[in-house]
C-alpha cells in the first residue's frame, strides 16, 4: 500500500489534503467551542486574536468555529450527492450498456440531452422553486438530481469495453444469468473505476452546491463554506479588507478541490494502469 502510494504520488497528495482537513475538523471539534458558529456569539468585526484565531464576522460569528463546522457540512453535501449520483449512474450504466436495445437508446438520449444543458441553471430553477429555506440534506438532494448524468456516461463506456472481455464471455457461455454476470464479473472489475468516478462527482457536487450558495440559494442558517462566502459577498467584506473572513473558506475549499481532484486522478491511474503517468 505504502509502496504503491510512493509511486502514485498524485494519489498521495490527494489523500494527504483530504486527511489534513479531516484531522483539522476532528481536532476542531475536540478543542474548540464550535457552537460559536452562531451569530452574536462573539464581538463583531474582530481581526484575528488569541480569543478568536480566525477573527469574527459582521454578525459576530467566530470564524474558526464556522470553518470547523462548515468543512464537514460542505463535504457531506458533496459525498451524499456524489453517492446518489454514482449509485444511480452505475445502475443506469449497467442496464444501458449490458442489455443495450431500447433502454440503452432512452438512457443515452436523456444523458446526451441532460449534459448539454448547463446544470447550474436547472439547479437554480429547482432551488428557487422549493418553498422555504433549504436544509443541508435537501441541498444535497437537489444537487444529486443531476449528478447522475456524468457517471452514467463514463461508467457506461467502461462497461461496454469490459463486457467484451474473455472472462465475461466465458461466464456467459457457462450459463451465468445476466444479473449474475453483472454482480460477479462486471461490478468487481468496475469497482476502482466507480470509486474514481465517485470522487470526481463528489467534487462536482461540491462545486454545484457552493455555486448555489454563493447565489444565495443555500441553507441560510447553516455555516457551510459556500454560505460563508455568500455572507462575505453580501456584506462586502472584501471592500472592508476583512481578509480573515474570506481567506480561510477559500483556502479550505481550494484544498478540498485540489485534494479531491488529485485523489480522482490518482484512483484513475489505479483503475487504468495503462494510462499510467497521464498526469
Amino acid at each position: 500500500m505504502w509502496r504503491y502510494l510512493r509511486r502514485n504520488k498524485i494519489l498521495l497528495v490527494g489523500l494527504f489534503l483530504i486527511g489534513f482537513l479531516a484531522v483539522f475538523t476532528i481536532a476542531g471539534y475536540l478543542f474548540w467551542d464550535v457552537q460559536m458558529y452562531r451569530p452574536l456569539s462573539a464581538p463583531a468585526n474582530q481581526s484575528p486574536s488569541w480569543d478568536h484565531p480566525f477573527g469574527t464576522d459582521r454578525q459576530g460569528r467566530d470564524l474558526l468555529a464556522t470553518i470547523i463546522a462548515g468543512t464537514p457540512l460542505t463535504l457531506y453535501i458533496g459525498v451524499l450527492a456524489g453517492a446518489i449520483g454514482v449509485t444511480v449512474g452505475t445502475v443506469l450504466a449497467l442496464v444501458s450498456a449490458y442489455y443495450g436495445g431500447f433502454w440503452d437508446t432512452i438512457i443515452r438520449g436523456i444523458v446526451d440531452v441532460g449534459l448539454t444543458i448547463p446544470a447550474l441553471l436547472v439547479l437554480i430553477l429547482i432551488a428557487v422553486s422549493i418553498q422555504g429555506g433549504l436544509s443541508v440534506t435537501m441541498m444535497a438532494v437537489v444537487v444529486a438530481s443531476l449528478s447522475w448524468l456524468w457517471p452514467t456516461r463514463t461508467i457506461r463506456s467502461q462497461v461496454l469495453s469490459i463486457k467484451e472481455r474473455a472472462y465475461v464471455q466465458i461466464a456467459k457461455l457457462s450459463g451465468t444469468s445476466g444479473l449474475g454476470v453483472i454482480i460477479k464479473e462486471l461490478l468487481p472489475n468496475l469497482l476502482p473505476y466507480i470509486l474514481a468516478t465517485f470522487v470526481g462527482s463528489t467534487a462536482a457536487a461540491i462545486l454545484a452546491s457552493v455555486g448555489l450558495e454563493v447565489l444565495g440559494l443555500g441553507p441560510m442558517d447553516s455555516p457551510t463554506l459556500g454560505m460563508t462566502i455568500y455572507w462575505v459577498q453580501f456584506n462586502a467584506a472584501l471592500l472592508h479588507g476583512m481578509w480573515w473572513w474570506f481567506l480561510p473558506p477559500i483556502i479550505v475549499i481550494i484544498m478540498l478541490f485540489v485534494g479531491l481532484f488529485a485523489t480522482s486522478v490518482g484512483l484513475d491511474e489505479l483503475a487504468n494502469p495503462r494510462t499510467r503517468r497521464a498526469v
Binding site: A203, L207, V210, G211, V214, I229, I250, I253, I254, F257, V258, L260, F261, A262
Partner: peptide
Amino acid sequence: LSAIPYFL
C-alpha cells in the same frame, strides 16, 4: 489552478 472554481 484548474481544480479551483473560477469565482474563488
